[in-house]
């Protein structure tokens, strides 16, 4: 990803900034120009909660090239405590540690380091909560 695009997405990737529709309250991650629920166009920034649970998951054995070093790795759709959903890796998870319903928290990790001449790319991953 070239750096202008990466830079534009920093509020979402680093700080989980979502857009809350000021008309109907629907929360969009990432923020949108127009509310998918009510069509509203006024939004306030809302930082997402970091805890949630796994809705579904997979273990990737054949990854795209930038993720080769991390394979096999778990990717999940996580539902955060406020109902917002996102897709991310589950860091350091042995495949059998992640199940539907597994509680997780979002952490800050390096997502891609390839190719070597590009900017490093950071963002959110999930980690299984100790329990």
């Amino acid at each position: 990803m070239i750096s202008p695009r990466y830079h534009r997405e920093i509020p979402q990737r680093y700080r989980l900034e979502a857009g809350r529709c000021e008309d109907c309250g629907e929360i969009h991650f990432p923020p949108r120009f127009v509310c998918r629920k009510c069509g509203g166009k006024r939004f306030a920034i809302e930082v997402l909660p970091r805890r949630g649970k796994v809705l579904t998951h997979t273990t990737i054995w054949i990854p795209p090239a930038p993720f080769e070093i991390q394979k096999p790795y778990v990717v999940a759709i996580v539902e955060l405590e406020n109902g917002v959903r996102l897709t991310c890796m589950v860091a350091e998870a042995p495949p059998d540690e992640v199940r539907i319903g597994t509680p997780v928290e979002l952490i800050f990790r390096r997502l891609q380091a390839q190719p070597v001449w590009e900017v490093l790319q950071y963002g959110y991953k999930a980690r299984v909560l100790a329990g």
């Binding site: 990803m1 695009r5 997405e9 990432p30 997979t58 990737i60 054949i62 990854p63 795209p64 993720f67 991390q70 790795y73 990717v75 996102l86 897709t87 991310c88 890796m89 997502l111 891609q112 790319q121 963002g123 991953k125």
Partner: peptide, 13 residues
């Protein structure tokens, strides 16, 4: 691209 593929998902995934 930005909210699925960026996180390492593939189509089989």
């Amino acid at each position: 691209q930005e909210y699925e593929v960026y996180h390492g998902i593939t189509f089989p995934g």
